[in-house]
């Protein structure tokens, strides 16, 4: 679905490569999380996938990125946009309308979706994002989590095969963050959409993502199934990623055969896990 081969990129005016020699394959239906310290090149990597780089932001581009069979350098960004939907890092800046419904209409109108189909697409994607009741609200009056869902719904309405999101929970509280990821999960599982999401909250990625890519200083230093990537604690520590202790604990308990549930995502769930393990041990 997405094949990145030997990709390096330097912003024009930049002193060093924002991405250096990245190779990564993302399969159809994958749910990939990208994590790494600030400035690691996460946003730039998403730009390489949706064609922002090198079409809208210029620089030295080496290597090859193929998305849905299209070479991103040769295919126009508009052609690419029919396959990849993007939610950018700055949530307020990327809205183009003042009313929720118009935000969804914008892309639908531009891509020439038949007018008879538009109404059902709007209803469907609002419902899928769980924000049907916000349809005629003023975007300026929405909370951060609601805005985030509007951005996701606006992309979903275009029915891309791939959705790329850059820190969609950046300004959200833990609860809204979870809800955004639950929306992504249902898109991934029910509609088979390939999800690529940059996220700092490792607990969320542990719970929702299938695969994890760790970036540091423009390099991809680790990539694979979430549990495999979490094994190499030193490498992650070096990349400025903190492995959650509960995740380490859950992994240990699982290895010892004492626990078989989900990795706890917060302290309350961690407590529940420990209670379960301890009560089992007492029997």
């Amino acid at each position: 679905m997405i094949r990145i081969k030997g990709l390096s990129f330097r912003y024009s005016g930049g002193v060093k490569n924002a991405l250096s020699d990245i190779s990564l394959d993302i399969g159809k239906g994958d749910f990939l999380g990208i994590i790494g310290a600030s400035g690691a090149g996460k946003s730039t990597l998403t730009y390489a996938i949706n064609g922002v780089v090198p079409h809208y932001i210029r620089g030295d581009f080496y290597g090859e990125v193929v998305v849905s069979g299209l070479d991103t350098v040769k295919a126009g960004p508009e052609t690419l946009a029919r396959h990849v939907g993007s939610v950018l890092q700055d949530i307020d800046g990327q809205m183009v309308s003042s009313v929720v419904e118009d935000e969804l209409l914008f892309g639908l109108e531009n891509f020439g979706v038949p007018h008879g189909e538009i109404e059902s697409r709007i209803e469907e994607s609002l419902a899928a994002a769980g924000i049907s009741e916000l349809r005629s609200r003023d975007i300026g009056t929405l909370s951060g989590g609601q805005k985030q869902k509007v951005a996701i719904a606006a992309i979903m309405a275009l029915r891309p095969e791939i959705i790329v999101l850059d820190e969609p929970t950046g300004e959200l509280d833990p609860q809204s963050s979870r809800r955004v990821f639950e929306t992504l999960r249902s898109l991934n599982e029910e509609n088979g959409v390939t999800i690529v999401v940059v996220e700092q909250k490792i607990m969320l990625l542990c719970e929702f993502a299938g695969r994890l890519a760790v970036m540091s200083g423009g390099k991809l230093i680790s990539e694979g199934r979430v549990k495999d990537v979490l094994m190499d604690a030193d490498k992650l520590e070096g990349a400025g990623v903190n492995i959650p202790r509960v995740a380490t604990l859950a992994r240990l308990l699982r290895k010892k055969g004492l626990y078989s549930g989900d990795t706890p995502a917060d302290l309350r769930q961690a407590e529940a896990m420990m209670r379960e393990v301890l009560s089992d041990a007492a029997v």
Partner: peptide
């Protein structure tokens, strides 16, 4: 300026340049 730049990119990624006079739904 950053915000505006982000807005422009987001608009273009959603087909801003493909739009015609009769694209409007309403």
């Amino acid at each position: 300026v950053r915000k505006i730049e982000g807005g422009a990119i987001s608009a273009e990624l959603r087909g801003f340049n493909l739009r015609k006079r009769t694209s409007g739904y309403k």
